[in-house]
Amino acid sequence: MTVSAGWYLTLSAVLFTIGAVGLLVRRNVLVMFMCVELMLNAANLAFVTFARQLDDIGGQSAVFFVLVVAAAEVVVGLGIIVAIFRRRAGATADDLNLLKG
């Protein structure tokens, strides 16, 4: 346990930021989805780190639930993407702007 929690948290923060920036700059919806997964993993890493730091298994339980939610989210999200691409092949996130004011 020589690597302190601070390093883990720092790594988590950097990973989260990379995911967030990726979400903002990428146009391919699938890649954006992957960036969301990056952010979720960053959060998971922070959870596990806190669980170790505080000696509390609750953090790991939270990660468990995050995994379940992520699985469900991916299922629905990819279903939506498939439905979209069935109508407009090759569409990027910027092409889907029908809801503009």
Partner: peptide, 14 residues
């Protein structure tokens, strides 16, 4: 890193 922090089950699920 999960394994490194004694979260073996989560690592496996991951």
């Amino acid at each position: 890193l999960f394994v490194a922090q004694d979260a073996q089950f989560l690592a496996a699920v991951q």
